[in-house]
Simulated scan of single mutants.
Amino acid sequence: MAETTKVVAKMRSRAGKGGARSSRRDGLIPAVIYGDKQAPVMIAVEPKSIERELHKEGFFNHRMEIDVEGTPYAVLPRDMQIDPVTDRPLHLDFLRIGPDSIITVQVPVHFRNENQAPGIKRGGVLNIVLHEITVRTKPANIPEYFDVDLTGLEIGHSVHLSTLSIPEGVRVVSRDKNATVASIAAPTVVREAAAQAAADAATAGTPAAEGTAAAAPAAGAAPAAAPAAGAKAPAPAKK
């Protein structure tokens, strides 16, 4: 299970764009805490307490505890607006969670032991179909990631949802209960080499380019027909 991140914030006295701009001028990140059938709380987050977490894998399924001037809030990040120029957060949305809340999150998939997969050793390619898996669970049961062991997989073998180890209290949300998570595909290098060989063979069979000497007649071929009797000899070329 993922660890809970501690975040420090202050109450935001003004809502709306004016209050958000005021928070940014003070070097803070405007944010809101909502959900759990309670009124929204407008806050401004201290950047240093959260910036290291913003671009980590699984940011939106990591539980956080926001200390708002001494009052703790258990939350999950739900949305983040980013400045397209500076790449800094402009606004954050947090979902308030309780111990009995049931939430939907995206859990990343990790692959290990690629060097123990015979198919990959022989040039096969790991084709990842699902980078994340959607689950519904209580906040305390959120997996940090799903682990896929590639040991022993040959070319053409696949890993399916049904083979994953799902923690107790976690339900996978998928229309296809046996969806493919990843497979070992045949190496594309082999197909490209075959295509190049076919292209070379086609090129070798093309007619000689204009201006090249005509090919000699094949052995046993009949010689060119002689001029008909009485036919005039061709006129000499004019100089």
Rank of each mutant, 00 (worst) to 15 (best):
S162D: 13
F60A: 08
P217R: 10
H160I: 05
L161V: 09
L161S: 06
L126V: 09
V109S: 04
A195E: 11
I50Q: 04
V109P: 06
P118M: 01
K10Q: 12
D100F: 05
D87Y: 10
V45Y: 01
H55W: 12
M11Q: 09
G123F: 03
P108W: 05
L153N: 07
I155L: 09
G205S: 14
H110A: 10
M80G: 08
G123D: 04
V45L: 01
R24H: 02
A218K: 14
F60Q: 07
T188Y: 06
N115G: 05
S183N: 11
A202Q: 10
R52D: 05
A209Y: 00
T4E: 13
S174H: 04
V32M: 11
H160N: 08
A74T: 09
P143D: 10
D93P: 06
A140C: 03
I29L: 13
A140E: 15
Y145F: 10
P89V: 09
A31S: 14
A213S: 09
P89N: 06
D83L: 03
I29T: 11
I29S: 07
I103G: 01
G35C: 04
T86C: 01
G220K: 04
R14E: 12
K238R: 15
T163A: 15
E51L: 14
F60T: 10
A117Y: 08
S162L: 02
Q81Y: 03
T4R: 13
P84F: 07
A20R: 06
P99S: 10
A235L: 11
P30I: 05
E46A: 08
L150T: 13
V159I: 15
T206A: 13
K238S: 14
G169E: 05
A204R: 09
P223Q: 00
S101V: 00
K48C: 00
A9F: 08
A213C: 01
E154N: 13
R136G: 00
V129G: 01
S101G: 01
Y34L: 08
E57K: 15
N61Q: 13
S162M: 02
V173M: 12
V125E: 08
H160E: 02
K6W: 00
D67F: 03
A44Y: 03
L54S: 04
A226H: 10
A221E: 14
G98A: 08
L95T: 05
A216S: 12
S22E: 15
Y145K: 07
N141S: 13
D93M: 06
K17Y: 00
G152E: 06
G98M: 07
N127Q: 12
R175L: 12
T206S: 03
V148S: 04
A228K: 15
G156L: 05
V8K: 15
H62R: 15
T203G: 06
E154D: 14
R191E: 14
